[in-house]
Amino acid sequence: MTEHLAARDSARVDFLTVAEMVEPGARVLDVGCGNGALLALLAEKRGCDARGIELSQRGVNEAVSRGLSVVQGDADKDLASYPDGAFDYVILSQTLQATHRPKDVLADMLRIGKRAIVSFPNFAHWRIRSQILFKGRMPVTENLSYSWFDTPNIHFCTIADFVALARIMDAKIENAVALDRFGQRIMVNAPWALWNLFGDQAIFCLSKSRD
């Protein structure tokens, strides 16, 4: 089903996975929304009131030109101005690793939104592990195509790291999906360690623990 949608709409599988986690009609803030592709998908397919923050001027201009509500701003600085519980979902799509203070950003997301959805590349994927192990070089893959010296990705983490962070922050994992490098979902019942080895990227939906 997911692949079918992806092929037809040429939307990214991770975007479709995020969209499936969002209730129709929800108020959504996408932090680091790029040119607004995910926002447009959420507005069109899920009827969301979708808004975004993006650092790059090019991305903001493109998004606003296509009629999306996007603000030029920095996830590390500009989340503070949003009031508590302003959104149903706050999304951080493929951006966590580029923030200066990922834990603070995540805390702000859980403050602003009832749920936080985070997608990120898994740095413990077996191909990355093997690049370090056998080449002894910082890994460069199709998804992570930067060299170490010019990458904006300064805070890589693994699926296991993220699960640990959620625990430290006392956040509840509502939902989680790992995608392999072909965009296929890895079995839900598989242990974290298997996700951590074969997951090319992961998408987590978190909420604040009530207790």
Partner: peptide, 12 residues
Amino acid sequence: NAAGASVSFVEI
């Protein structure tokens, strides 16, 4: 943002 308004912002 604090008022929950729908806002776009561009620095040209």
